[in-house]
Structure formats: C-alpha cells, structure tokens
Amino acid sequence: MTNVNRFSDLQLRSTNLEIDRIVAELRVQRIASLENRLGHRRPPKLPSRKILVGVAEGLSAAMFPNRLGSADLADEGVDHYVGHMLNTTLRTLLVQIQHELHFSSGLEHLSDEDRERSITITQAFAKCLPAIRSLLESDIVAAYEGDPAARSVDEVLVCYPGIMAIIYYRLAHELHRLGVPLIARMISEIAHSLTGVEIHPGAQIGGSFFIDHGTGVVIGETAIIGRNVRLYQAVTLGAKRFQVDEHGALVKGIPRHPIVEDDVVVYAGATILGRITIGRGSTIGGNVWLTRSVPPGSHITQAQMRHETFEGGAGI
C-alpha cells in the first residue's frame, strides 16, 4: 500500500460515515418499494444489461463475422466461428428471456410454461437472423449510396453510428415482436448510449433505411417508416400529445407517432409529431416543425411553414 493510500485509509477510519445505519435505512426503503410494486420482498431477476451488451455484440459478429467478428478469421474457419457465436450467444439470450418472463409473471419461480415459451421465442428469433441480415444489407448499401463521403460499404458498416443503431434496432424489433419487450428495449437503449440514436423497438421500419450522422435522432414506438427513407441528425418522429384515461393515467400503446412513406428524406433538426402521414417521395427540410400530414411529393421548408403560421397576421 502506498503512503497516499495508507493516509486515505486512516482518514476514512477516523470519519464516522454511519454506514450500518445507512444500509439499514436503504433496506427498509427497498423492501417497502418491492412490496408496493410487486407484492413480495424478493423480486425475480431482471435481464442483465451487461450481459445483453455481449448478446448484441455476439449476434452482430455472427451476422458480419469478417467485419464485426474476430480480426484473424481464415476463410475456412468462418462458418465454424459463426456457429460457435450463435450457439454461445443464443444460449445466453435464452437465460435472459427466462428472466424477463419470470419477472413479468410475478410468480415465485419460473413456471414450466414460461420455460418452454423461452425456448420457443429463442428458436423463432434464431430463424429470423438471415432475414435480419438481408434487411441490414439493404441498409448498409443505402448508407453507402446516400453518402458521398463513404468510400466503401465496409467503411459504412464499421464506422457509421447510424448503422450500429439500425443493427441493434432490427435485432430488438424481432425480440419485441416475439414477446420480450423489456430485453428489446434494453438492447435499443444500449445502442442509444453508444450512438446517440434512439429507436424504440416497437417502431416498424422498412429496408434501405439510412440515418446520416445520427446523433439526436428519436423514433417513437408506433412510428411506421417505409422503404428507402433517409433521416439526418436531430430528427424527431414523436408524439404530439399523450392521451389519458378517466383516472388521469397515460393510455399506452395507441398509435401516436408519424407514418413516413417510401422514398422520403427528412433533413437535420426536423420535428414531426403526431399520427400524421408524410407522403411518398416527400422532402422535409431542416428545422421544420410539422404536425399535419403532407401529400406525396411534397417539399416542405422552414420558410413555407413560417409563411403558413404568420399569414394574415396570425401566429404569435
């Protein structure tokens, strides 16, 4: 132990931090909270965010082994590597799915029914991986073709935060669809932390999707996005308002986010709110605030929106 560490240890010993009392108070609060929320004092385990980081990385490596997998793979060893990654990662995912199903059930122990369901979900998810890989290929090509700064599709795959966000979204979306929304949300939030792009796993997004630059993009749970759509940084596809029930509680799950049809481009800083439709082939300019539907082929700019707002003395 260095002199500095020894001095710090002596300081700590001479300082009365009342650790035992604080631990006891935190325990009382923790137990009361669990009993109020769950009805019992020992909650089942939640899926582990740390483990799901490894799951997302492992699945990405299995789909793109030569670029996101091991750096020293020989051609003849790729299939073996992919098989190993899938076997290891899917077994790990299975356990996390069991944790979510157990937590959601509220039961003391994992039921046989949920144990079987976790296997069914894992098998169904595994079968989706080739289709996910195909969709991601279209996204990567769209990014390469849509960005003049991109020198290769490999550069897009390993460098672009928008592509990482889309990879994690497409994995999370299938898990959400198969009935494990908590794991799906955790994977999407891992991507959010890494890239600054927030895509709710419940959103529906077609192929050839490109997010350029990425930072600050938000796509809500009930958004529907068609094929060949391009978003730039700081775009929001959000809700205009939140409905409440007769008790004042938020009504969840209702369609409240935009529908963006095929071949739409939305430039940086645009905010599109509510269950409105952006018609096919439209272009939404930078910093536009849009809360109404627009027909196919529209070109909406900030100047047009200001003109509509202040026309005839209306507005602020």
Rank of each mutant, 00 (worst) to 15 (best):
D154P: 01
H192T: 03
C159Y: 08
L250V: 10
G83R: 08
D72V: 11
T89L: 08
E100L: 06
T122F: 05
A74I: 09
L59Y: 02
G253E: 06
S48C: 14
A203R: 00
K240H: 12
A191V: 11
R275F: 10
R13N: 08
T277Y: 08
L250K: 07
E308I: 09
I19W: 07
V78R: 07
G202R: 04
A142I: 12
V265R: 10
P201F: 06
P47G: 01
T309Y: 15
G58Q: 02
T309W: 14
F103D: 07
L86Y: 06
V156M: 10
R280N: 13
E35Y: 01
E137L: 13
E308C: 08
V218A: 06
L10Q: 11
A142H: 10
M305P: 11
S33V: 03
A270W: 02
S152E: 02
G77Q: 12
Y169C: 08
P43G: 03
G206Q: 08
F310E: 07
N16S: 14
G216P: 05
L136C: 08
L52R: 07
E76F: 11
S70Q: 10
V180W: 09
L175Q: 07
L194C: 05
V294D: 05
E189V: 07
D112M: 12
H40N: 12
I211L: 01
L237K: 02
E261F: 01
R21D: 11
G312H: 15
A56S: 12
G58M: 04
A142R: 09
A124N: 08
I31Y: 03
G286L: 04
V23Q: 13
R6C: 03
V82C: 05
D79F: 09
V28E: 14
C128N: 00
R280A: 13
Y232V: 02
H307S: 15
E57A: 09
T120G: 05
D263Q: 03
A126F: 10
G83W: 00
G77T: 10
E100A: 03
E261V: 00
V78M: 04
R292V: 14
R6Q: 14
Q96I: 06
D112L: 14
V264T: 11
D20K: 13
S105H: 07
T92E: 15
V294G: 05
G39L: 06
E137A: 15
L182P: 02
A303L: 09
V251M: 12
D79P: 01
K45E: 14
M164P: 00
T236Y: 00
G207T: 13
G238I: 00
V235Q: 02
Q243S: 12
T236W: 00
D154Q: 05
R117G: 00
P161Q: 09
Y144L: 08
P255C: 01
A234R: 12
R37T: 11
M85L: 15
I272P: 02
R13Y: 11
D212R: 04
Q29H: 13
I167A: 02
G54E: 08
G162N: 01
H257Y: 04
D212Q: 05
I219G: 03
R275A: 13
H299G: 00
T215R: 06
V244N: 11
N66T: 14
L73K: 06
V264H: 10
A149P: 03
R37D: 13
P201M: 06
R292G: 02
P47F: 04
D263E: 07
I190Q: 02
A268H: 03
Y232K: 04
V264Q: 09
K240V: 08
E246F: 07
L17V: 08
D245E: 05
V251D: 03
D139A: 03
V180G: 07
A74M: 13
Q304C: 02
I167C: 04
